[in-house]
Amino acid sequence: MDTTEIIVTLAGLALSGFVIWYFFFSARQTAAAVSTSNGVQQVDITVKGGYSPDVIEVERGKPVQLSFYRDEENSCSEELLMPDFSIRRDLPAFKTTLVELLPQQAGTFTFTCGMGMLRGSLVVK
């Protein structure tokens, strides 16, 4: 192996390590729902290349209102799927879409875009 091959191999290994760290071990932005005076838990979520925040904590047995603002036109983010709650919503670009649900059991429930590339979690305590 000459010097160029060694440099390319090391750069490839470093890049692979970064990708693995970013997708599996980096800290996720977590948000706890804010309860309104009428007991509804509310969270604002921005959709732009992903969900921000992408981990949402709510309390079991209380109604939840998620406000998804899609701040892009990327076709991947035009649909929201929450299979554990039988929810499918279209997310129009540059508009807010309300999703209401009532979590009855504790656990972690995944939500994704229609292609499954963008991912988030609803943590019910």
Results as ranks from 00 to 15, higher is better:
Ala32Pro: 01
Met82Trp: 00
Pro63Met: 14
Leu13Arg: 06
Phe18Val: 11
Leu80Gln: 03
Val124Ser: 11
Thr4Trp: 13
Ile87Lys: 04
Pro53Asn: 01
Leu102Cys: 03
Gly49Pro: 11
Thr96His: 06
Phe94Asn: 10
Leu118Lys: 03
Gly50His: 02
Lys125Phe: 04
Gln65Met: 11
Tyr51His: 06
Leu118Glu: 10
Val124Pro: 01
Ile7Tyr: 06
Gly39Tyr: 08
Thr46Lys: 07
Leu91Gln: 05
Ala32Thr: 09
Arg28Pro: 00
Asp54Cys: 07
Lys48Gly: 04
Lys125Arg: 15
Val34Phe: 08
Ala11Arg: 02
Ala31Val: 02
Glu59Ser: 14
Ser77Lys: 07
Pro103Ser: 12
Phe25Cys: 10
Ser16Glu: 00
Ala14Pro: 04
Ser86Trp: 00
Thr97Asn: 07
Gln65Ile: 02
Arg60Thr: 12
Pro103Ala: 11
Ser86Val: 00
Glu100Asp: 13
Phe18Met: 07
Ile7Asp: 05
Val64Lys: 03
Arg70Gly: 13
Ser16Ile: 12
Ala11Lys: 02
Phe18Arg: 00
Phe94Trp: 15
Thr46Asn: 09
Phe109Trp: 13
Tyr51Phe: 15
Gly39Asn: 12
Ser77Thr: 08
Cys113Ser: 15
Trp21Leu: 10
Ile87Phe: 02
Gln41Glu: 15
Thr112Leu: 12
